[in-house]
Design a protein around this nucleic acid. Structure first.
Lengths: 299, 299
DNA sequence: TGAAGTTTATAACGTTATGTTATATTTTTT
DNA sequence: AAAAAATATAACATAACGTTATAAACTTCA
């Protein structure tokens, strides 16, 4: 009966082919000569044809063997590669991370974090998919992504989340009268038209409460989902806004200025991942790195 | 210490991935469940990360494993392929044969033999390289080819040969006065202009001797290396010739006719192969098949 | 829940693959 | 033909891989 072909036999075959000598091959493999002799004998038996011919003192592979050698070498190379990749994985140097995030992060904060993370991890690749929070939540539930950066998240059994409260600031066009204040209060904004997030959002409610507490009317002008859009509108002099400091800084334009807003209102970000699926080691590492990157902006 | 990755472990890994169950995988592999359990445990140990997560009763590969799976599958597929190809080789259904031959054979007799040979040997491939006898001899000595079909071969220590003596016939243009004879003798050709092989060739010497013995002068018109060229010339009415029956038949044109020549003169073909290099099984088989194909034309 | 049933892991122990050393045989060189 | 080198064979140890028995963990369902 034709037995099973074994890797060790292939290693012996290739070594003998390379050195044209069983003795030499054994040395290179770091085992004894009889061991190689028998590996070859067994392999020849399994394959059903002789493996080498003697030619003036050297062993030359038969044509049958040569016909198989490229495939055999490929197997050995692949094994080697798998071994290397697995090492990279344990050293957190290889893997793939699928990230879903709010559109704002895809362009501003995240790229820098990703670039930094990949710098000393050559085998790691990353997918970034920006979309609305609702979609990000779906993706987490479906486990289509490993990690999500979202806001307005209210909990879901299939999604584990870590909340990050980032500072917010009031932004206004450069040269605006508000630039003389070192801190902005609702009273300062009594006559200003506000650009803000959706009325249903937690953040808007906090903001509205602040105005309410200060007995100042809130003049709503534009409602937008994204802080980046708010920055853009403010820079065009449309109005003023209270946005996360993260966005204000990353907007990086000289057309707007920012000041702390009082009372302190935090914007809640949620770093999420599927509950059921244990994150891969490299994903965990990235999630930590990302949380760390937000530290400077946390309340 | 990171031990060696073994094929059996990969087989277990893929089986468990496929069936999401160790028990089921063991059944499919035809071994006991504990055996699979341990293969996985060992592999996890070697790789350095856990292989599966439990998800409502099923085993789901970790992302780390999924990252390696395509490579692992490729290794297993390749092993399978090698095993299949090696079977084909022993069954003479796979391999490669490099054939060097005279130009005439490349176009006429050989293709049919090759086609027939390949018909029920799907894995076999063949190289055909036509050239002059001198070059064919070189190729044999250099072992650049497995099998050669040549003539005028006078022996060489590095080349083993088998001589084949094929019948020859006299050819002339259709409707020529010779067509009334059932057998042509030198005397019949006394007034004919002859197209023949090189004067140094054995075959020409035999032919010349026949004329000499019959005391008939040989009127040489064209000297050519190839019988096919002679056929061509004859078909254009340039003269008559004595060529191997093989070529006469394969020329397959109604423009020439042939008759046996008397005395019988054989044309010596040599089937050659390198002495030192043992022919592969499939090459031996082809050489036999080719020799067999010449049987109908042998003296 | 918790008890039953199923699945997986662990333990104890053969068999085969793969290694060893010693030695016979073959091949190459002198 | 003898000496030297290379390879094959024999006898035996160890690790890989299989077994069965059984413990532990997980699912299911009353």
């Amino acid at each position: 009966m034709r037995q099973k072909l074994r890797l060790r036999q292939f290693e012996a075959l290739m070594a003998v082919t390379q050195y044209s000598s069983v003795t030499r091959a054994a040395q290179e493999l770091g085992i004894s000569q009889p061991a190689v002799s028998r590996l070859l004998a067994d392999l020849g038996q399994s394959l059903g044809f002789s493996l080498f011919d003697r030619r003036d003192g050297k062993l030359v592979p038969t044509q049958e063997v040569r016909f198989l050698q490229s495939d055999i070498q490929r197997v050995l190379d692949l094994m080697e590669q798998i071994s290397e990749v697995s090492q990279s994985i344990t050293q957190r140097k290889a893997g793939h991370i699928r990230i879903a995030c709010l559109p704002g992060f895809a362009t501003s904060h995240l790229p820098e974090v990703v670039a930094n993370f990949l710098k000393d991890r050559p085998g790691v690749s990353i997918t970034i998919e920006p979309d609305r929070p609702e979609r990000i939540l779906e993706w987490m539930i479906d486990e289509q992504f490993d990690f999500g950066i979202t806001d307005g998240f209210r909990g879901h059994s299939a999604v584990e989340s870590k909340d990050i409260h980032v500072r917010t600031v009031c932004i206004f066009p450069t040269g605006h009268r508000l630039s003389s204040s070192s801190e902005i209060t609702p009273a300062d904004l009594a006559d200003e038209k506000l650009i803000h997030t959706r009325r249903e959002s937690e953040f808007f409610k906090s903001l509205a409460n602040a105005f309410l507490d200060a007995s100042v009317p809130l003049t709503s002008l534009v409602e937008t989902r994204q802080f980046t859009a708010a920055c853009e509108l403010v820079s065009h002099g449309v109005g003023v806004a209270v946005v996360s400091e993260l966005d204000a800084i990353n907007y990086g334009s000289s057309k707007i200025e920012s000041r702390p807003f009082s009372p302190k209102i935090a914007h809640k970000l949620s770093l999420v991942h599927p509950t059921q699926k244990r994150p891969s080691a490299i994903t965990s590492e990235f999630m930590n790195a990302f949380a760390e990157s937000l530290k400077p902006f946390q309340v």
